[in-house]
Design a protein around this nucleic acid. Structure first.
Lengths: 173, 173
DNA sequence: CCTTTTCATTGGGATGCCCAACGTTTTCCG
DNA sequence: CGGAAAACGTTGGGCATCCCAATGAAAAGG
């Protein structure tokens, strides 16, 4: 179960010498089809590059509020569907239980969530969002929107809708 | 400089209880706009999810040849533009020098590349692809193509071209 | 000719993902 | 009803990836 919060990096666009002819990934030279050009024209590679840039932009934006992407994801889950057990978060997010402990420690320390024993099941902690957490969640949502507008800046509104529709179809399965 | 080879994982599509109503990310309920639904409708999140799945598919496919995505990327760079110095690969791929050493150790051990002192500059190793390496590169390219066809299976040919065009524009900047 | 830069190797560290164990609590089954 | 199994949270260990840097040798620059 891959994790979009840890973001790996794509190769630089084309690290060849300045002025070196850069193959058009859409129309590779059939006489000299490059393995590198082919790799860089794969949808998975292109999506990876866009995703890496998108995550970097969002991560940078919400870092101004002292949060990481993972914190944002935890907070969103808890605010919408809380109270949630830590094991719920582990399942929902696909995170390591240890990492969820660390994330919650930070969120709790910042007063954004509250972790309390579940009165119905003493094995569990019930995690809920505080008003401050909800407030910050709105701020993060706005920051994330702006980062995504930056990401999609080269596209016009119709192209953005098209891209979103196609990605949404591929993202669910 | 983010790296698309290490692939993080998106949240599961929607981990709510079976039967729980799942918000349509394209048309969030304006009465009850969820933070989670909002996060999951961001282009960066959607691209991350598609990218994670794409990379997982490609990684799984080329693993049958004993390679990782990073090996494939190194091999493609070396085959097209070799001989390359290790420092060239570090710059091109954005990898840690230590990781490039490990990757080349494996590729060399498998007879896919040759690492020789550069006669013109004894600081450098000249890395070149062997015929066996080029052969395997073709195999990996075919495997990667099939994995990407699998990734894009829900789209018809016109939609695939549209997606590719939009991603290509976003991927270069 | 000396200083600076580059190269490859390697050290250390942080983070995220994999595995598992432990004690407590709850659920399940005979 | 009681014991076994499962769930929960915490924590340990380990590996891979990304960050930092140091070292000695070689090349470039002033």
């Amino acid at each position: 179960m891959p994790n979009v919060f840890r973001y790996p990096r794509p190769m630089s666009p084309d690290p060849r010498q300045p002025g070196a002819q850069r193959p058009d990934p859409q129309h590779p030279d059939p006489q000299h089809p490059g393995a590198l050009a082919h790799l860089q024209s794969l949808p998975s590679w292109l999506a990876g590059r866009v995703a890496a840039r998108g995550r970097a932009l969002v991560a940078e934006a919400i870092a101004t509020e002292g949060l990481k992407l993972q914190h944002y994801a935890v907070l969103a889950n808890v605010a919408d569907d809380g109270p949630l057990a830590q094991a719920d978060l582990v399942r929902r997010l696909g995170f390591d239980p240890k990492d969820v402990v660390l994330l919650l420690n930070h969120l709790e320390h910042e007063g954004l969530v509250v972790r309390e024993p579940d009165p119905r099941d003493r094995r569990k902690n019930a995690v809920t969002a505080t008003p401050e957490g909800r407030r910050l969640l709105h701020t993060c949502a706005r920051l994330a929107d702006r980062a995504n507008e930056h990401l999609l800046a080269p596209l016009d509104p119709a192209e953005r809708r098209t891209l979103l529709a196609l990605l949404t179809r591929l993202a669910q399965d």
